[in-house]
Amino acid sequence: MDGLDLLKQHWNTDENFPKVDKESLRTMLHKSSSSLVKWIFIISVIELFVGIALGFLINIEEINEKPLLHLINNIYTVVFYVIVGYFIFLFFRNYKTIKNTKNTKSLLQTILNTREQVNKYIKFNIYCILFSMFIVCVEKIYSYIEERHGWGEILFYSVTFTIASTLVYLLMVRIVKYYYKILYRRLIKKLDVNYEELTRLEIEA
């Protein structure tokens, strides 16, 4: 007899399971879920708010008094919040489409898409920080030129600012990558593996 057939024979007659009574079932209904989607939701909302807070922090510091840079900064602020608002709207819209009654592949796809949207949001924030750092660098160099420092001094500060900014940026990217590695392993990997298995099946056929 084939292994699965033997299992099937046992399966159909197996009634030896714990019997959960109505009262216990009712208690279970009101317990808090510990599903992956719930954790993904909590982490995503935290990340969305960290992004907004970061935007505030960058804006609090008056980075320039030059009209052109001031204009750029204002346009940047408006664009930043419009895009953040759009990301938040997309996230909640996608989150609402997660339904456990969908077929498995669609469910996995919706969860992963929702998360992917947040990943794009994080990338957007990193680019924004890079842009802000660039503006600060330009402003500092411009100030040195205006204060009529010697060219040697200007060059020295320009190089120092650029190197320092690049290092800070690279460090930040490294931290974010490390954070994702941990997050990915804990939350998304199971979903990714299962979704990939279903997709691979379609490609192989």
Binding site: K8, W11, S106, N194, E197, L198
Partner: peptide, 26 residues
């Protein structure tokens, strides 16, 4: 794997392949 277990479950429950495919989205 998780997906394979789902197929095994539906096989043991005598579900036909139309239903199995529909449930998994393949």
């Amino acid at each position: 794997t998780d997906i394979e277990k789902a197929l095994v479950y539906m096989y043991l429950e005598d579900k036909d392949y139309v239903e199995i495919a529909e449930t998994l989205g393949i």
